[in-house]
Amino acid sequence: MTLLAVERIKLFTTRSPWWCAAVALTIVIGFAALITGTAPSDFPITVATSQFGYSFGLAVIMVLAALSITTEYRFGTIKSTFLAVPNRTAVLLAKTGVVALLALVIGEIAAFGALGVSALLAPGSDLALNSAADWRQVAGVGLVYAITAVMGVAVGTLVRHSAGAISLLLIYVMVVETLVPIIPRVGDDIYKWLPFNVAEKFLSGDGAVRGASEGPPLSTSTLSPWVALAYFAGVAAVLLTAAIMVARRRDA
């Protein structure tokens, strides 16, 4: 518990988490307001459309998570931490837990805030959470953000440089996963197993409760929603394990 308290204090005494949280909330809720407020009268406003901006907030969560560890390497505070607590595994797990919890809270506030704004701007639309799929679409955003934060901390630990870690994370999500499907013959098969495509399957399922044009693009993964979440979490666990092993072997 002491380690968790220390990591919480270190995280919240810097400006970057506050700025990142504010930006993520503004983007997700702002997109919902923009889409709902400017939609033509015949455009269906649904639970899915209210969550259209979650992927942009996801990029901000990556930045937040990466900065939580790379700034410690940049300013050398990680050395003092490892001297005070020689168990590096415990330190990194505590930091990851605190950052993931913050990402979870941001995700839930953003998702339900976006839903609330949409309901306020389009009171006649059907935005009730009537099914498990609807609940996953909204409440699941926090879980995806939390797991993404674990990945961000892991990559930040491996790279140790803020610019490098952030660039690697954003390029992967925004470029690599987007371009893989265009690889001849094998692209679509590979894309089915890429982590953020699989995470989308958890959130949107097979799209049975919404049209393909409502909300973010549907996932091509063949996994069921909860298995997809487990797979996504497994990828994050592998990355974090690799990061901890590397951190234990090299100098701070």
Rank of each mutant, 00 (worst) to 15 (best):
Q51W: 05
G207N: 08
F31Q: 09
R8I: 08
V150N: 05
V23K: 02
G164L: 04
L120I: 13
A132H: 10
P195E: 03
A212I: 14
F56P: 07
L168D: 04
L194V: 08
A163F: 15
V238A: 14
A149Y: 10
A128M: 13
R15S: 15
V159I: 15
I109H: 10
N87L: 09
D189I: 12
A5H: 14
A94C: 07
T14N: 14
R250Q: 12
S167K: 10
V227I: 15
V176C: 05
V186W: 14
R250N: 08
A228H: 07
A132N: 12
A22W: 00
A33M: 11
L229F: 15
G234P: 11
G30S: 11
S219H: 04
S221V: 02
R88K: 12
T148G: 04
I78S: 03
T14R: 13
P217G: 02
T157A: 09
I9C: 08
F12K: 10
T71I: 01
T96S: 09
F43N: 08
A236S: 06
K95W: 01
A111T: 05
I183E: 10
R74G: 11
G234K: 09
I109Q: 08
M245D: 04
G205V: 03
L179A: 14
I171D: 09
S41F: 13
A212M: 12
V155Y: 01
L58A: 04
T89N: 15
N197K: 13
R15E: 11
V180E: 02
M151N: 11
T148R: 03
P17M: 07
A114P: 07
V144S: 00
V138M: 03
V141R: 01
A237L: 15
A48K: 14
V47D: 03
S221W: 00
V23Y: 07
A149F: 06
P40T: 12
A100T: 03
P17K: 10
A252G: 03
V176Q: 10
I27M: 10
T77E: 03
Y54L: 06
E108M: 15
P86T: 09
D206C: 07
Q51N: 13
G30R: 04
T222Y: 05
I35H: 06
F43I: 11
Q137L: 15
W18I: 11
G207I: 09
V246H: 11
A208E: 12
S16Q: 09
T96P: 04
G156H: 10
R249S: 12
F52V: 13
V150R: 06
L240A: 01
G107N: 07
Y54D: 14
V144G: 00
A228T: 12
Y172V: 07
A111I: 12
A90Y: 02
S55T: 15
V63P: 02
A128V: 11
I190E: 05
I183D: 13
Y231D: 07
V198K: 03
T157M: 05
T89W: 05
N197R: 12
A90P: 04
W135Q: 09
V91C: 00
A90L: 12
P40L: 07
G156P: 09
